[in-house]
Design a protein around this nucleic acid. Structure first.
Lengths: 247, 247
DNA sequence: TCGGTCGTAGTGGTCGGACCACATCGGTGG
DNA sequence: CCACCGATGTGGTCCGACCACTACGACCGA
């Protein structure tokens, strides 16, 4: 796959790629390649930092930077005193960084993100309407009633998040659920939500949630898609006018 | 705002976390917070590694790991000999890592990713049908004809990618375009595409591309959405049967 | 004066070593 | 048999040195 058996008695394995970018970048690519190539399975333990560094012929410092980067990306997981492991490479592991995108985006980007969320959320809700089990539905209802039973913004937000999370989970596409999770991350949600709810949108939000739940209970994908799209669309439109007013 | 007059373990220093996780993790959060809080603008130059390390009271090594991680995430950009800068925080900068997700996903995850691509691609194509300019349309046509004029798989793939890239760009949602870009990254596309095209799907692909182009030229969003969904759906369905056959 | 050249200071990139904090496992003694 | 404890190995942190590159200004020749 990547060997270059050209002479070179000294170096054997992995000693290819002349000198692209930084050595750390090279190390990152090597490890990613090992995983993509199946030489490292999810959950498997890697050699020690010192070993890895020696194998690629770089210092431990540089190797640590590479490992740290992959850790932040959700590809690796370092356990102090134990070792370095490949994550399960589940959607949740890898897409956690999606929240960073949402948190650092501003202005027009926020609207774009909401547009994407509208598309995905409506699709997920439609799928959920067709697949949701009774247990999952009752879980959704739990958060719905809890959300309507309090007026503590923090609590409302928490149940709101859980409400949509349950629906996304019921859609059966973990990757989609993970992305939606990122698009609803605490900070992102808080930034937009705060202003939105301050304008007395509680009642409207409540109606929209009720409509979504009704569609789910009726197992009506079309109604579910429409109500979810409208729900996100309301926030989206509000944000759009906000940006127009205060550019 | 947040001076740290050396030492003083008593802890004051506006806005600082006690001692969660690793110091590197703390540094990452601090820098992210600085950007999210507007204290660091896109394109702005950061203090030197040595300075930053001193300010947060950590070693340069740890600070370097933090910077490296943020660099890989597309938040920062290090220029050898010059300094460290905040990226423009455009969709492309931050979502580059999305390609990693696509490259490392396997099995059922691949289908999920294609499902997401189908949803987003069809939406983007529909939007493009309503907004595309004549110039952009001719650009799309260029890649379409070039794609049909050769039988070199590599070249076909390149023009295929460009074809969809142009359409995504015409949709006017940079973030969506960036995500789709990641979902069509070279390696991801190559892994799925290769097998798909080996089964003589060229003709079918050609027809589907023609249909998409026709819808765009007619400025017909509905037709565009349908043809794009069908296009991705074909690949998706093929992959689904593949996984069923060889689990 | 103008233009290019060359030093030099400052920056990120790399390295090696040292020590600390924690997890794990085996042996020990009850 | 179990609880304890120490040894060992691992990642986490720090330090100091040096290299490679960039930026900028002083210098020199035309």
């Amino acid at each position: 796959m990547d060997e270059t058996p050209t002479g070179a008695p000294g170096a054997e394995t992995a000693a290819n790629a002349p000198q692209k970018g930084t050595v750390t970048h090279r190390a990152i690519e090597q490890i990613k390649a090992m995983i993509a190539g199946g030489r490292l399975e999810p959950g498997q333990r890697l050699p020690t930092e010192r070993d890895l560094a020696a194998r690629l012929g770089i210092s431990r410092s540089s190797m640590r930077e590479a490992i740290r980067a992959l850790t932040v990306l959700g590809v690796l997981e370092a356990r102090h005193g134990s070792g370095i492991y490949v994550t399960q490479l589940e959607a949740g592991d890898l897409l956690e960084t999606f929240g960073v995108v949402a948190d650092l985006s501003r202005g027009p980007r926020l609207v774009e993100l909401l547009e994407i969320r509208r598309v995905l959320e409506s699709t997920a809700t439609a799928l959920a309407a067709a697949r949701i089990t009774d247990d999952q539905l009752s879980e959704v209802e739990k958060h719905l009633t809890a959300m309507n039973a309090t007026d503590d913004p923090e609590e409302i937000l928490a149940h709101d998040l859980a409400f949509h999370r349950e629906i996304a989970a019921a859609a059966g596409n973990e990757t989609m659920a993970a992305i939606l999770e990122g698009l609803s991350s605490r900070t992102f949600r808080a930034r937009v939500w705060r202003g939105y709810q301050e304008e007395g949108a509680f009642a409207r939000t409540r109606r929209e949630h009720a409509a979504i739940h009704r569609a789910l209970a009726a197992r009506d994908p079309e109604a579910a898609r429409a109500s979810a799209a409208a729900h996100v669309g309301e926030v989206e439109e509000w944000l759009r006018t906000q940006l127009r007013a205060v550019p």
